[in-house]
């Protein structure tokens, strides 16, 4: 899936994947897609929960070779 920006948060522990994702998305325009790669297992539930509470849209979620991938559309 196409994205406007890719955030590599692999190897980072909670809360950093979400902290960095928030920073990145703040710099994007409405409708842009942020792609996030993370390895912290907590991200699997925290990224979708953060997306929901912040009003953005989780377009897709995947797991590939233990890497969690998320595509988030900025509100």
């Amino acid at each position: 899936m196409e994205s406007n920006k890719v955030l590599n948060a692999e190897g980072l522990a909670c809360p950093m994947p979400v902290v960095k994702a928030k920073k990145e998305i703040d710099n994007l325009n409405a409708g842009d897609i942020l792609e996030i790669h993370a390895t912290d297992k907590g991200a699997a539930s925290d990224i979708p929960a953060w997306t929901k509470s912040s009003g953005h849209e989780l377009v897709q979620q995947d797991e590939e070779n233990d890497i969690l991938k998320f595509w988030i559309k900025k509100a």
Binding site: V18, V19, K22, W50, S53, S54
Partner: peptide
């Protein structure tokens, strides 16, 4: 124990 919940990502 008095406990409340506020996810960290809502405190950023």
């Amino acid at each position: 124990v008095e406990i409340i919940n506020k996810p960290y990502f809502e405190l950023l």
